[in-house]
Design a protein around this nucleic acid. Structure first.
Length: 422
DNA sequence: TCTGGGGTCCTAGGACCC
DNA sequence: TCTGGGGTCCTAGGACCC
């Protein structure tokens, strides 16, 4: 029998929330959401020490904490969004990326837990290692998602990939107590959609000939790469399902959505996708950003802003150094109280991971912004990365050519005095 | 009820070079 | 004096994803 290209997409079910349930099994079956801001004071262990000081509460006692002691959505006041919700919480319409305050209206009694990335990264590494032991060609798609190339894995062709998917699913659950959903299809595009068809803890096998029956009835939004903007435009043209999209001429799509995106839309609707499963990639940029507890005024809150800016620069620099990268494009990002964002960046003539240098160049970028409104977010980014210690990392513009390094082009923008405060 | 943080990729215009 | 293309780099913004 001919070897078929079989690609799997694996998605951990309600990942962050499920990891929390391992620590707090008493919350199983209850609506729980992860998210909100920096609310460490809601730490349940701390609360128990106040409530029952006679007992020595340690991290070994997490499962003994009564449900009543957990913070509720109702009590939340700050900013922030929901990162993950348990299926019991999703019943109320609560979902990821939703503002916490909105979620509190929908389900005030849901339990709200702070995000603990340290813990999630640990389980992320664990489940990926398990998969790589079984099927080595794995592409990282974030903390809770991967693509796996089943094509040449022994047994990867059996039942279209179903038995291998079952093995991976069972091994992950046996080792971690977590469940996942897997879709197997001829390519990444269809595998991603397949993994959504049967959640949670499901497996979906898709063949090319299933396209019309299983994919075409789905909403265009289900295609990975069609977001809210593109969907709105499609809807305006009366295109609602993937089948509607497939019925459109390639030329028509290219005319209305651009040469590149239009052609891609056409291919996607017909289930065509040749992208390989990529096992390794280099980072392009690293950044740190923070949304303030309340909007800050550039003049009135300049001390606070300056301190936050310095800290962000130190964090990015530390990230770069820890991971062994240097970059030469340094930029800042601001978000105003009306949610409008601006970015400014500047490319310097050498690579760096130095916090003071990042702060200096970032400061120059900030001077180019007209601070007409209060700020809600400040971010720092370093791009054009190369590995530290390589030959390239030591090159400067002066070394690359015999010419003197060019002066940075004169800014077209006015110089804004307020930003000098940084 | 205002909307996190960390990324990638694309577009488009201008500078600059050949 | 006016008129070329092609290629690369830089910058700003935006769509999209997890």
């Amino acid at each position: 029998m001919a070897v078929m290209r079989r690609i799997a997409h694996l998605d951990m079910d309600a990942f962050f929330a499920s990891v929390e349930l391992l620590r707090y099994p008493q919350l199983k079956g209850l609506p729980v959401v992860i998210g909100g801001g920096r609310r460490r004071e809601d730490d349940v262990l701390g609360r128990m020490r106040t409530l029952e000081p006679e007992r020595e509460w340690t991290s070994a006692d997490l499962a003994d904490i009564p449900v009543a002691a957990f913070p509720r959505l109702r009590a939340y006041t700050g900013r922030g969004v929901i990162t993950t919700a348990t299926y019991a919480a999703r019943v109320f319409g609560v979902g990821s990326a939703m503002g916490v305050m909105k979620a509190a209206k929908l389900c005030p009694d849901a339990i709200l837990l702070p995000v603990d990335f340290e813990q999630y990264r640990h389980y992320s590494r664990t489940f990926k290692d398990i998969v790589r032991d079984i099927a080595p060609i794995v592409e990282d798609r974030g903390v809770d998602e991967i693509y796996i190339d089943f094509t040449d894995v022994p047994g990867g062709q059996r039942e279209g990939g179903k038995s291998l998917a079952r093995l991976i699913q069972k091994t992950i659950t046996d080792h971690t107590g977590l469940t996942c959903s897997i879709g197997v299809a001829p390519n990444k595009l269809l595998a991603k959609m397949a993994s959504e068809l049967n959640k949670p803890n499901g497996i979906s096998i898709l063949y090319e000939h299933d396209l019309q029956r299983n994919i075409w009835p789905l909403a265009c939004r289900k295609i990975n790469g069609i977001g809210p903007k593109a969907d709105e435009k499609l809807q305006a043209h009366g295109i609602h399902t993937i089948g509607d999209l497939a019925a459109k001429e390639r030329d028509w799509l290219m005319q209305h959505f651009g040469k590149s995106y239009g052609a891609w839309l056409c291919d996607a609707a017909h289930g065509r996708d040749e992208r390989p499963v990529v096992t390794e990639s280099e980072p392009v940029s690293m950044s740190r950003e923070t949304t303030f507890d309340k909007d800050l005024h550039v003049v009135h809150d300049r001390a606070a802003l300056g301190a936050i800016f310095t800290r962000l620069c130190q964090q990015v620099a530390a990230d770069l150094q820890r991971k062994g990268y240097v970059g030469k494009t340094i930029g800042i990002k601001l978000r105003f109280d009306n949610f409008q964002s601006v970015t400014r960046d500047q490319t310097i003539d050498h690579y760096t991971a130095n916090p003071m240098e990042i702060r200096h160049v970032g400061g120059l970028c900030l001077k180019r912004v007209d601070m007409k409104r209060r700020l809600r977010l400040l971010g720092v980014r370093v791009g054009a990365l190369v590995k530290a210690g390589t030959d390239e990392a030591f090159t400067t513009d002066a070394a690359k050519s015999d010419e003197l390094p060019r002066e940075s082009p004169p800014s077209k923008e006015p110089h804004h005095e307020q930003a000098d405060l940084f």
